[in-house]
């Protein structure tokens, strides 16, 4: 695996984690756990946007692997 595809895999995992967290937040009827899931989802989405930039950058650097 190239670095680009590794970062892409990680990006996908982060995306799936964010979605799961949001789903859990919506499903929990207890205020505290709702809050915790929501806050975590926000942090994860920040990480996600950083990683997204990196994915785009890497695919520009190594266009032959796209």
């Amino acid at each position: 695996m190239t670095v680009g595809s590794q970062v892409k895999t990680c990006f996908a995992s982060v995306k799936s984690a964010e979605a799961s967290l949001q789903m859990l937040a919506e499903k929990s009827y207890d205020q505290k756990s709702y809050q915790a899931f929501k806050e975590t989802a926000v942090i994860i989405s920040e990480i996600k946007s950083d990683l997204q930039k990196q994915v785009i950058l890497l695919s520009k650097e190594e266009p032959q692997y796209n």
Partner: peptide, 20 residues
């Protein structure tokens, strides 16, 4: 630095949510 920052962030996120 970007990777390190995000890794740190993710660590705090895990700490926040792992009890749940």
């Amino acid at each position: 630095q970007m990777y390190e920052k995000n890794s740190q962030k993710l660590k705090t996120a895990i700490d926040l949510v792992q009890f749940y």
